[in-house]
């Protein structure tokens, strides 16, 4: 079933959601956007470009508590996995595709109960991109600018109103009742097709030159290409910005914190990742990825080779956050292009 909603009714729709859910929406902040919990529809921006942090972080929050323990009796340790009912609204396709991938990655045994618990109480409203939203993106190269699943509702701007694809029962429940939504008619569908034709015109420039299907193969061939990895490694500050902002980075460190009375404590997880020096440090002080060059290479391989091998598709959804947030101007697009160019040279 598909429906439509007038643009100026969206506020009413959000107000309705607020009665039942925590509503997480793109909110403007100093010229950029962030996904924040809103308490008033006027805070939400439907038109926004890639947010600073991806919406998945609401399903995988920083400093989430995993365990509660009792220092006097460690057998009393309890797993904590809680979630409130929440709706992530107006999520772009790249970010939906990232959540779809993480749904698979984190469901692998041993599954991540905290992620899965939150995921189960999360509804997702998608928002179609009819053109590239920022400069440094490569979603289009990988087809990640379109989402086919992973949402309950999906909004497309068809001029003055939205075409809303209802994908699940939960989605149906959101649009039923109070008469805000109308059943989609033939004219609405025609406008949707028109908008999608515009989308094709909007997404017309690939960021990576060459056959993207071959990229992971070419990367493997470039494993020892020091002219790429050493050069990037010299620039890299190992600051971790790129792995914190990435929607498909899910590594963490477990940290224990004890109450002042020293009787009880919690174990929580803190976002962590492969670009940080301490990440690969193991007992005894050994570090199995000592240089920044090795770490940069690992990040690129993790996205484009390892995740792809395991899950059949690239782990980089092309959102471009890592590129915009790297103050050393290390760009995954640029690296991919150099790998492609190297392959062309070597044929």
């Amino acid at each position: 079933m598909d429906v439509t909603i007038q643009s100026n009714d969206v506020d009413r729709f959000i107000r309705g959601l607020l009665l039942y859910y925590d509503v997480i929406a793109p909110v403007a902040r100093d010229g950029r956007f962030v996904f924040e919990r809103i308490d008033d529809p006027s805070m939400a921006s439907l038109k926004y470009d890639t947010t600073l942090l991806p919406p998945i972080k609401w399903i995988y929050p920083n400093n989430e508590i995993l365990l509660e323990f009792d220092l006097k009796d460690i057998t009393k340790t309890e797993v904590v996995a809680q979630s409130r009912k929440q709706v992530l609204t107006f999520v772009h396709p790249c970010d939906i595709n990232a959540i779809n991938l993480m749904d698979e990655v984190l469901a692998e045994e041993p599954s991540d109960v905290n992620y899965l618990t939150r995921r189960q109480s999360t509804l997702i409203i998608g928002y179609e991109c009819l053109g590239p939203c920022r400069e440094n993106i490569l979603c289009f190269d990988k087809g990640y600018h379109i989402a086919y699943r992973g949402f309950d509702l999906f909004f497309t701007d068809i001029g003055g109103r939205y075409y809303v694809h209802v994908a699940t029962d939960a989605g149906r429940a959101m649009v039923e009742g109070d008469g805000i939504f109308k059943k989609a008619a033939y004219d609405d569908w025609k406008d949707l097709m028109r908008a999608r034709a515009e989308r094709k015109k909007g997404f017309n420039k690939k960021a990576v030159e060459g056959d993207i299907g071959m990229l992971s193969h070419f990367l493997k061939e470039a494993y020892n290409a020091d002219e790429i990895w050493e050069a990037e490694g010299r620039k890299c500050l190992s600051c971790g910005a790129c792995i914190i902002v990435c929607p498909t980075c899910y590594c963490f460190d477990a940290v224990d914190e004890v109450c002042p009375d020293m009787e009880k404590g919690v174990r929580y997880r803190r976002w962590d990742g492969c670009q940080l020096r301490g990440f690969c440090k193991v007992a005894g002080g050994e570090n199995f990825r000592k240089s920044a060059a090795e770490r940069v290479r690992h990040r690129v391989f993790k996205k484009e080779v390892y995740l792809k091998k395991r899950f059949g598709r690239s782990g980089c959804v092309g959102c471009g956050r890592c590129i915009d947030s790297c103050i050393a101007k290390i760009s995954i697009i640029d690296i991919f292009n150099r790998v492609m160019e190297r392959a062309r040279r070597n044929v």
Partner: peptide
């Protein structure tokens, strides 16, 4: 043992260096 940027980005801050300013984080 990680730099301030990790905490800064985790909070969804806008980076001062990205904006053309200075920061030693």
């Amino acid at each position: 043992d990680f730099p301030v940027c990790v905490e800064c980005r985790s909070k969804g801050n806008i980076c001062l260096v990205e904006e053309g300013k200075w920061c030693l984080g």
